[in-house]
Write a protein that binds this DNA or RNA. Structure first.
Length: 427
DNA sequence: GGATTTGAACTGACCACATCAATAG
DNA sequence: GACTATTGATGTGGTCAGTTCAAAT
């Protein structure tokens, strides 16, 4: 993928959609993502102008290029003279913004198509906004981001974001020393930490809002060993769920809500260097833990902008609320490109009550709202599809031509009942 | 309304082997 | 340090068997 729009195959690609793993021109981006409500939620960002294959996360003001994490690393390594380049965080968006709206979030983005308002934009009156987990200072009057002495950013924000503006803007987390944000007030900088709104317990917060915030079905984490990762067994997680963990989050105990797909890989153990043995250290170190992960995850993150805020947030609150030892298994750049496989991670990730939610009894949730949420979840689950990514095209090419018996590969020269090449059978 | 049946949908295992990654020399 | 050889691990797709779920009876 890359350079040429994956959809029309004609125009230069400009936007990268993680959910579709596609590079699109602006026109196709609108067309594709105006198809339905689900596609409108796809989080997109600019395409890295260097590798043309990954989502850009920063804009280098000096070089006037948008770069993915990896290219940013490569190009602005501390050992190079470019390390001082001023860089601007590139936010992601969802919905179908016009170029004008894009230029409002990306100051460098050309505003060129006044006549090109997308159909969905007109239909919907812009897009829905879901204030995602963490973002840059969209409105300085509303958002203030500061750093504490530990270098951990605090975000104070009015959580009642302008939902009427219709489209969503999310920042990509930074895994490197924060580039200077050119479009933000001095002193405010982006933070890789998730922002949780303390008021976002159920009033005004639908299940979809939660899903949108977490976008669990799009999380790029492949948690391969849950017990090792979280130090709890599934039984334990079920216990937690029974105790209201996921229910308090979604207003449902439907275990199927835990079904999700994630991709990429977390291999933080060699990065972090040690298991976190107890919850107290977890509580104290979870922020640092996530921060510690980020630089080491840079390759993976850049590979797919995988370590999105969402992921970070999930990690954050999961670790914060884990009650057992915690360890991560290795991060591999290879797997960060990731298969889409159901890993059940969300069930683990959601096993705890989100930290921003005050204790809430089940009865506080209107039953109608709850059942609505369940229904919507089920509908969403039904329509959700996970594409399988092929990591090694050469292996796929080989598998595509291999002869099989009842679907199984057979030795070369053996009798086969299926030949992908000519659809013939030898027996 | 609860129990049973039925069919659809889903999930994971299986196979061979080229390729990848790590290690040794 | 660079190179080559060796070895073990990995991933690829179609099919099948087993499981789960929902609808019908």
């Amino acid at each position: 993928m890359g350079y040429i729009c994956d959809f029309c195959g004609d125009q230069p690609s400009l936007v990268y959609c993680r959910s579709d793993a596609a590079c699109l021109c602006l026109s196709c981006d609108r067309n594709v993502h105006s198809a339905n409500a689900l596609s409108k939620r796809h989080s997109r960002t600019l395409l890295c102008e260097r590798c043309n294959s990954q989502a850009a996360i920063v804009r280098c003001a000096e070089e006037k290029v948008s770069l993915c994490q990896n290219c940013d690393w490569m190009g602005h390594d501390a050992s190079t003279s470019n390390s001082t380049h001023k860089r601007q965080t590139i936010n992601s968006y969802s919905g179908c913004p016009s170029s004008g709206e894009l230029s409002s979030i990306w100051s460098f983005f050309p505003q060129s198509d006044s006549a090109g308002e997308s159909a969905c934009e007109q239909e919907l009156g812009l897009m829905s906004i879901s204030e995602n987990i963490e973002s840059t200072s969209w409105d300085p009057t509303v958002n203030t981001i500061s750093h504490n002495s530990a270098g951990i950013a605090k975000v104070n924000r009015d959580c009642n974001v302008d939902k009427g503006s219709g489209w969503t803007r999310t920042s990509i987390p930074e895994h490197r020393p924060a580039p200077q944000l050119l479009d933000q007030p001095a002193g405010s900088t982006d933070t890789s930490l998730p922002k949780f709104c303390p008021q976002t317990k159920y009033p005004g917060l639908s299940e979809d809002d939660l899903y949108d915030d977490f976008n669990i079905d799009e999380v790029d984490l492949n948690l391969e060993n849950y017990e090792e990762l979280f130090g709890v067994t599934l039984n334990h997680s079920e216990e937690l769920l029974e105790n209201g963990g996921i229910d308090s989050l979604f207003g449902t105990k439907d275990m199927s809500a835990a079904d999700s797909t994630c991709q990429g890989a977390v291999a933080a153990e060699p990065i972090i260097g040690a298991d976190i043995e107890d919850s107290s250290s977890l509580q104290g170190s979870s922020i640092g833990l996530v921060n510690a992960i980020q630089p080491a995850c840079s390759n993976a993150a850049s590979a797919d902008s995988a370590m999105s805020n969402k992921t970070d947030s999930i990690l954050y609150f999961t670790t914060k609320h884990a009650h057992s030892s915690l360890s991560f298994s290795g991060l591999t750049g290879e797997s960060s490109a990731g298969d889409y496989q159901d890993c059940g991670a969300s069930s683990m990730l959601l096993m705890g009550e989100p930290p921003w939610c005050p204790p809430c009894t089940e009865s506080s949730i209107p039953s109608a709202t709850r059942s609505d949420a369940v229904l919507r979840y089920k509908a969403k689950k039904k329509t959700r599809k996970f594409e399988k990514r092929v990591r090694y095209a050469s292996r796929k090419a080989r598998a595509d031509v291999r002869k099989r018996v009842k679907g199984r590969f057979v030795k070369a020269g053996d009798a086969y009942d299926y030949d992908p090449l000519n659809q013939t059978r030898s027996c």
